[in-house]
Design a protein around this nucleic acid. Sequence first.
DNA 1: TTGAATGCAAAGGATTTGCAGAGGC
DNA 2: GCCTCTGCAAATCCTTTGCATTCAA
Lengths: 170, 170
Amino acid sequence: MSTDPDLTPLQPVQVALTPQERFNDYLQSRGMRNTEQRRILLDCVFHQHDHFDADQLLERLPNKGQSGYVSRPTVYRTLGEFVDAGLLRKFVLDGRSVYEHDYGYPQHDHLYCSKCEKLIEFQSDALIKLRDDVGKTHNFQVRNHRLIVTGVCDDCRRGRRRVRRKVDLI
Amino acid sequence: MSTDPDLTPLQPVQVALTPQERFNDYLQSRGMRNTEQRRILLDCVFHQHDHFDADQLLERLPNKGQSGYVSRPTVYRTLGEFVDAGLLRKFVLDGRSVYEHDYGYPQHDHLYCSKCEKLIEFQSDALIKLRDDVGKTHNFQVRNHRLIVTGVCDDCRRGRRRVRRKVDLI
DNA sequence: TTGAATGCAAAGGATTTGCAGAGGC
DNA sequence: GCCTCTGCAAATCCTTTGCATTCAA
């Protein structure tokens, strides 16, 4: 390989269906309904690639009373459905549930900057192998894993001032 | 090495001070006081080597009204102090904060069985190297990491019936 | 038409905080 | 005696739930 894989931005994976199509299949297979709220949330979630929590998703949506509004309980319920449907992955950071694209996106892990709270994605085949090897050694059937490497990112080491966000764009 | 390091139970690390001595140093250096509650909790926490959360620690202590009782807020406050003092490490599992020995115990990671909720420790130098290499590639200053590999443990694969606990002994 | 989904309000669980009294140093 | 620590009660934060109404199929 000529370029370092850890510095190549993660590339989308080839998938047969759009997230919308895949979610429709999921809904139909379970006798669930294709409601306006589910369409709004799916569009919002797949409109940009980033990490977000329920609050941040709510902030991107119209306020109460306006058209396109979705209530907080419905946001929580629907995020759970997206995870079930294999569209999103969820993990916990500083006590909040954080979501990221799963469908159409490769397996990866994160560097987490404790100064600016930015998440940086990286992909490592060696980690997958390591994890599987440890599993074999313990006769443990591996389903998945979650690695978060905490430290200080390049920007913060250089002393750059930047807005501190709860969870940053990549 | 003749034995597989992943199957050798993790061995304590040589340390100069007992946890009690180290915590006393920590308290003195900050002008904090050596109270009975702190002594009770430190003894309880280092009396056995396992993973536990605040509730489980409370369950091991005398009830309200009895001698040796420590209130819930004090348990939470003191666990935070133990983490600050480098005695315990904390991580989040299924929405609860779980604590484990840090002082006098080697860096390690966990296999987490989603059936019986048991935690199995393993140590991997290759993981440390991998994590440091990824950090270098991104000019990211690594402080620490947390890897949890989820799956099904040996016992559960064999279909053994066992009590399902919130967080099991190792 | 009919059962599923929504929004509201309220509950829930884990953890934290304000404060008055207790207790190290 | 001073100032920290504790226990109590209440608050907080994030998330979930019960229920009457709305709405997709």
